[in-house]
Design a protein around this nucleic acid. Structure first.
Lengths: 151, 151
DNA sequence: GAACGTATGTCAGGATGCTGACATGAGTCA
DNA sequence: TGACTCATGTCAGCATCCTGACATACGTTC
């Protein structure tokens, strides 16, 4: 297996390391959010709405990396629980702009604190320079992957 | 939302960037592997076995970030398709060491090429120094997250 | 105005994966 | 030896999410 061009060394592969880090982060976030009865997608939805009020179900789905159907089901639950409000009719087109309620903002604040603690733990031992470099590298990876492969 | 200590700026958050990059990579890998009738977990299993023959179902599950149950179901399919072999009885304990067959190695070679192309595309525009730095940062993140949170 | 492409919300169906639980085998410690 | 802990394989049941499809609404183009 040490032959040239044979396999992909998983311990060196940036793709594998990416998956490993993402998986560990997700597990830690789920653990931190469980006491608050919140899933990662649930939290992501609230955080997105806090930063960009009026996002539609489809836009939230893209931002939280799930399908429209899943996000719409979640939004119905959040509406029922009083964390999110949506108008009965679309002001334009078919998109229903969602908004956080006061309760939604309050619940989000707790969740944000928990998630921030996880992220701080993850970044322990990394200098500001390293964090900044990591942001640049990750942004570059995303941009390169967005570009479709040459058919 | 620019208030101190309010939300987490998703465009700056390394956690969000990590998820974004990982999600984009997974989508690209699935796209690249689809013509070969292979899923990402399927490929991961084969690649792990190529590098470390004799891994058990549970060990493969941890390496591919799925549950033992899912990996075992996959292994049964791979055995049926002749890509993997396992002894009928455990040589020691209950763990059944899995091995790639010749066919498994051949199918893996195709998949590895496809995945390598995706990874190369992802790393376009990044210098060797940046790639090396990214490895260091990701390994540090994983290690920090492994350490359980102080209760 | 009409046709086309795109984006959204929504429905049904099915595949996929996980949680929880159990019995077995091996190692550890007294 | 016996009790304890840990890891593995396996079963059943359930939750979750996605794929595929359809109707609607807007913008663009001719």
């Amino acid at each position: 297996m040490s032959q040239d061009g044979a396999g992909i060394d998983l311990q060196t592969s940036l793709g594998y390391l990416l998956k490993q880090a993402s998986s560990a982060l997700r597990a830690s976030m789920e653990e931190a959010l469980r006491p608050l009865d919140m899933t990662v997608t649930h939290y992501s939805c609230l955080e997105l709405l806090a930063q960009r009020p009026g996002l539609s179900s489809s836009e939230l789905a893209r931002g939280a990396f799930v399908t429209r159907q899943s996000m719409n089901a979640l939004l119905q639950t959040l509406e029922r629980d009083g964390q999110v409000t949506r108008p009965a009719e679309a002001p334009v087109g078919k998109a229903l702009p969602a908004q956080l309620t006061a309760r939604g903002r309050r619940d989000l604040a707790e969740a944000t604190a928990a998630v921030r603690a996880v992220e701080d733990r993850m970044l322990t031992g990394l200098s500001d320079t390293e964090r900044s470099a990591a942001r640049g590298v990750l942004r570059s990876m995303v941009a390169s992957l967005q570009t479709p492969p040459p058919p």
